[in-house]
Amino acid sequence: MGIYFNPTNESFTKDRNYEIYVDKTELIAYLNKVLGTPRNCIAVSHARRFGKSHAAGMIDAYYSLGCDSSNLFDNTKIAANADYKKYMNKYNVIHLDISSFWDDFKDNLVEKIKEYIIDDFKKSFNDEIDYSKKFSVILMSVYKKNNYSICNHY
C-alpha cells in the first residue's frame, strides 16, 4: 500500500517538477500559524479533482520527519515567510488517503487503516511501544516518544 507514517517528499517533488505546477504553499503559512493553538484541527475537503492530494503531498513534504525538504521549497511563496524553516521536517506525520483503502476494505475500513499505520510504527519503533493497547493509546505513545505533535491528513 505505501508509507503512512512519516512519508517522503516524493509526491510533492513530482508536483514541483510538473510544467503546470501552481504554488499553493501559502497554505503552509496558515498551518504554521495555527500550530499549537486550539484551532489546530484542520480538515481539507474540496470537490473531486480540486487538489487535495497535491495539498496533502505538500504538507507531507514540509512537515514530515521522513524526508529532508530543505531545498524543495526554495523559490515558493512560503520561502518568503519569516517562519519558513522553523517547522520544516520536524513532525511525525500520518498520511491517509482513504480512497486507497475503500475498494479493498469497505467492510473493515477503520481496522485496516489502524493495521497499516501500526505496521509502519513497528518499522520505526520496533518493540518500544505496546501495540496491544487501544489505537489512541498507541498514538499517544508515539507522540510522547518523540515529543512532537502528530498531524493527520485526510
Score class of each variant (00 low, 15 high):
residue 1 M to L: 05
residue 1 M to F: 04
residue 4 Y to C: 05
residue 5 F to Y: 15
residue 6 N to C: 10
residue 7 P to Q: 06
residue 9 N to E: 11
residue 9 N to P: 00
residue 10 E to I: 14
residue 10 E to Y: 04
residue 11 S to T: 06
residue 12 F to W: 06
residue 13 T to D: 06
residue 14 K to L: 12
residue 14 K to Q: 09
residue 18 Y to F: 09
residue 18 Y to L: 03
residue 19 E to Q: 07
residue 19 E to I: 00
residue 22 V to Y: 08
residue 22 V to F: 08
residue 23 D to Q: 04
residue 25 T to V: 06
residue 28 I to V: 12
residue 29 A to C: 04
residue 30 Y to A: 06
residue 30 Y to D: 04
residue 32 N to M: 11
residue 32 N to Q: 15
residue 32 N to I: 04
residue 32 N to D: 15
residue 34 V to P: 03
residue 34 V to T: 12
residue 36 G to C: 04
residue 37 T to N: 02
residue 38 P to D: 14
residue 39 R to V: 00
residue 41 C to T: 00
residue 44 V to K: 05
residue 44 V to L: 15
residue 45 S to Y: 10
residue 46 H to R: 14
residue 46 H to Q: 12
residue 47 A to M: 08
residue 48 R to F: 05
residue 49 R to N: 10
residue 52 K to N: 10
residue 53 S to M: 10
residue 55 A to T: 15
residue 55 A to W: 09
residue 56 A to W: 14
residue 58 M to D: 07
residue 60 D to M: 08
residue 61 A to D: 03
residue 63 Y to R: 07
residue 63 Y to Q: 05
residue 64 S to I: 01
residue 64 S to V: 01
residue 64 S to T: 02
residue 64 S to C: 05
residue 70 S to Q: 12
residue 71 N to C: 03
residue 71 N to K: 14
residue 72 L to F: 01
residue 72 L to P: 00
residue 73 F to E: 01
residue 76 T to M: 03
residue 77 K to A: 04
residue 79 A to N: 12
residue 80 A to L: 15
residue 80 A to F: 15
residue 83 D to R: 14
residue 83 D to M: 11
residue 86 K to F: 13
residue 87 Y to S: 01
residue 89 N to Y: 00
residue 90 K to T: 02
residue 91 Y to S: 06
residue 91 Y to E: 07
residue 91 Y to I: 05
residue 92 N to Y: 09
residue 93 V to Y: 01
residue 94 I to F: 05
residue 94 I to E: 11
residue 95 H to T: 06
residue 98 I to T: 11
residue 98 I to H: 01
residue 98 I to G: 07
residue 99 S to E: 13
residue 100 S to F: 02
residue 100 S to H: 03
residue 101 F to I: 09
residue 104 D to N: 13
residue 106 K to P: 09
residue 106 K to A: 07
residue 110 V to F: 06
residue 110 V to I: 13
residue 111 E to I: 02
residue 112 K to H: 08
residue 113 I to S: 09
residue 116 Y to Q: 12
residue 117 I to G: 00
residue 121 F to V: 03
residue 121 F to K: 06
residue 122 K to A: 02
residue 126 N to P: 11
residue 128 E to S: 14
residue 132 S to C: 02
residue 134 K to V: 04
residue 135 F to E: 03
residue 135 F to T: 05
residue 135 F to V: 09
residue 135 F to G: 00
residue 136 S to V: 10
residue 136 S to G: 02
residue 137 V to D: 05
residue 138 I to S: 10
residue 138 I to Y: 09
residue 139 L to Q: 07
residue 140 M to Y: 03
residue 141 S to E: 14
residue 142 V to A: 10
residue 143 Y to A: 10
residue 144 K to S: 15
residue 147 N to F: 10
residue 153 H to C: 05
residue 154 Y to D: 13
residue 154 Y to N: 14
residue 154 Y to F: 08
